[in-house]
Every structure is written in structure tokens, then in C-alpha cells.
Simulated scan of single mutants.
Amino acid sequence: MKESRYDYVIEHFAAGGDRYLGGENMLELLAFQVFKNNQRTMRELNIPFTLPAECVKFPGSETLINESQESYLNTKQLVEKLRPLWERHERYEEEFGKGMIRADLFDKAGRSKLNVELLIDQDEMEQLIEERIDKGIKNFFESLRRAFARSEHSKINKVNILLAGNSSKSPVVMNLFNKWIEREVQNTQNWGEMSSALFEILPPLGTEGAYLKQEERNRVVNRDIITAPTGKTGVAFGLVQSRKGGSIKVIDRDMVNGESKFKYFLGIRRKGKLKTMIDQEEEYNKWHLFIDASEEDFEIYYTSLPEASTNQLDIKQAQRKKLRIEHVDDSAFVYIRTISPNVIEYVVADEDSIISRNYLSEINKVELS
């Protein structure tokens, strides 16, 4: 009866995301690759640039990469030059198919360098885009699989995938989603027996594809209303309407004993992969044996990417933190526990003292970000 005050009731089973998949991050990734491919020119002209998230330094990059104002301006300038390629503006292939673009950049002294010629490989850029989006969709399905594992499969007969954000308008997104759906419907280990109609992609609001979907559902569509929600603003409207007192009720099942879950998958490095020791489903304040205490220094790796649950995530995609213990003991271990969404504690103990709480060292607290 309480639900009668709402237009919709939504049950939230899990949260997972790829924080660097947005369009601007994609453009910075492309810009970095162009700078890297033109590093000789960058050195000759003394032009610096930034290191975007997920990108890694390369040999000799220490003289080129910094966080100066000039570096940010150069990255921004090149991002705007590459935007037509990412957004597939009309006749973009003519501009980028020539193999060279020009950009106005700045050297380390702040002097303007006009019409700097930069070599660019359009095929390489489009491959980077496809690989990065493919990685994001892979993590989406892994997160969805984990959500299914905590629900009753028999009650799920439809999964609507709602695309949002300007970048989701890219045809690459739709093509890759269709590829992954075709693959997933054959994966009975993850989903059980299902029909190919289980998944349906709903295009971003405001696009012709979205209007056609709405008309299929006998919704009245007016393409001329400029204030109607779009793929970008629709998310904001949804958040406003699902606030307390709003017209949408959200029942949050993504909790552990009434608290928000731990945000990360945490583990160690094994043969270039992240081996997860503690995942997002673990309850708080429970000690986990992590590593032996035979040396004073050890490392933890962590990420929010759902692929980490498979133990196949490339270690380069995880963040690393070096930690130190004050009590070295060949017969003891380092134990770790989560205490909040982004905070862990670690301590040195043996099998008996971890139970009796008579630890061999002080408890150390670490905040992850």
C-alpha cells in the first residue's frame, strides 16, 4: 500500500562502473596516444602534455609529461582537434584520413607554437576507441552477472539495457553491445537457459532510435519539445525524481548489514593479473589472511572494475599501494579487513592471536581512493 504514492518502484541489486569510460576520458586517451606517437616533435619543440587516467608512462616521457598549465592546455587543444573523430562529425574521414593534423600548442615556457604538424593514424585511433569501449562493456556484463548471482533467475525474463550520455550515441557502442549480447545468450554458465530476447538495448533519449522504441510501446512522441530529457539530462531527471519524497521509490538491495558495500576488489599480483583476496561482497570487520609477515614491506592492488572478480584483470588496470608492517615474523601473517566503503585495516597476527585479538602489532588504517 505504501508504494501507491510512487509512479515507479525500482529495486537496486548492485552497483558497478567504469569510471574512465566517458567521452572526455576517451578523447584524452586518444590525445595521449597522438602525443606519444609524435614524441620526437614534442621534444624538438619542447612541448609538454599530461598523463591521463589509465595511460602509462613510456621510456623518455619524464621530460614531456607534467601537470603544468601548458600541459593541460596542450591536451585540451588536441582533444578538441580529435573530437570530430570520436563523435564522427560529417566528413571526419576526409580530415583524419590524410594522416596528419595541425594544432596550436604551447612549449614549456608558455610560448605559442602555431600549426604544429602531428602524424595521426585513423585506423589506430578507431581501434583504441573500440578496444576501450569493449573493455567497458565486458565489465558491464561481469557486473550484471554478479547481480544475477544474488537474485532469482527464474523471476527475470527481461533485461533492458538503457544507454545514456552523449558518448553512448556512438554506433561503436551499439555494435559492441550487440556482439556481447550474442555471446552472452550462449553462455548458460552465467545466465542459465535463456532466449535471445532476454536482453534489449534502449537507445539514448532524444535520438531517433529512442523515439521509435517509444512509439513501439504506444507512447505519444513529440520530437519538437526542446525541454524533453535527452541521453545526457535524462540521468539527472531520474536522480531528482528518485530522491526522498520524489515520484520514484528506490529499494536498495546493494547493502551489507544496512551499510554501503566495500567499493573495491582487493588482492595481490599473480603472473600479471590481479588475484582478488577480498571482494565487494565481504562483510565489514572480518579479518582475511592476506600474506605472510616475513618481510616488512608488502603491496596491495585494488580496483572497482567487476572483471577483477574473475582473477583475470590485467594488473596494470589496478591501483597499487605500498604498505609496511612494524613486526616481521616468519611464522605470522598480515591480516586485512574492510571497515567502510573505502577504508581498510591491517594487522600482524598468527592463527591463534587473530582469534583471541591479542595481535602482534598495532592495527593500521588505510584509506583507498
Rank of each mutant, 00 (worst) to 15 (best):
K113G: 04
I47C: 05
T207D: 00
Q280M: 13
S71T: 09
D279M: 08
R91T: 11
L205T: 03
V185F: 00
Q214E: 08
E87C: 10
I355K: 15
N257V: 06
T50F: 08
F35N: 05
I65Y: 07
G136A: 02
V235D: 00
L118A: 07
I268K: 08
I181M: 01
I300T: 00
T227H: 04
L163P: 06
R357H: 14
I65S: 01
I248L: 04
L128T: 04
S361M: 03
G99S: 13
R111H: 15
G60I: 05
T207C: 09
Q280C: 05
F140H: 08
F96E: 02
I47G: 00
A14R: 06
A147E: 09
K261Y: 04
K244F: 07
W180M: 10
K155A: 13
P229F: 00
E90Y: 12
Y284V: 10
R324T: 14
R19Y: 12
R132C: 03
E367H: 05
K57H: 10
R270V: 15
R19A: 12
R150N: 14
F262L: 05
T63P: 02
E70F: 10
K322D: 09
L163A: 09
V235E: 00
T50I: 10
T338E: 05
E208V: 14
S4E: 11
K261F: 02
F96I: 12
K36R: 14
R223Q: 07
T41G: 07
M125N: 00
M194D: 02
V34E: 01
S340R: 09
R40L: 11
Q312V: 15
R88I: 08
E80I: 06
D329Q: 05
Y359D: 03
D350I: 06
K169Y: 07
R324V: 13
Y20Q: 05
R357V: 12
Y284D: 04
R19V: 15
N160V: 15
T63D: 15
P59M: 05
R324P: 02
R337H: 10
L239W: 09
V79Y: 03
N257D: 11
A109V: 12
T75G: 01
L360Q: 08
S154R: 11
P341K: 04
G245M: 01
V328K: 00
R88T: 09
K213N: 04
E296Y: 12
E307A: 06
D297P: 07
Q186L: 14
S304Q: 12
N115A: 13
W86E: 03
E281R: 07
V159A: 09
G192E: 06
I354C: 09
P203H: 02
P306M: 02
G209Y: 00
N139M: 06
L198T: 00
L114H: 08
A53R: 09
L274D: 01
D292G: 09
G245V: 07
G246I: 01
I339D: 01
E296T: 14
N37P: 02
N38Y: 04
E152S: 15
Q317D: 05
K36Q: 14
A15S: 14
G231C: 05
I10G: 07
F290L: 08
P84A: 07
E70Q: 13
N38G: 11
F106H: 08
L82T: 09
G99M: 13
P306N: 05
Q312N: 15
V56W: 01
L128M: 10
S369P: 02
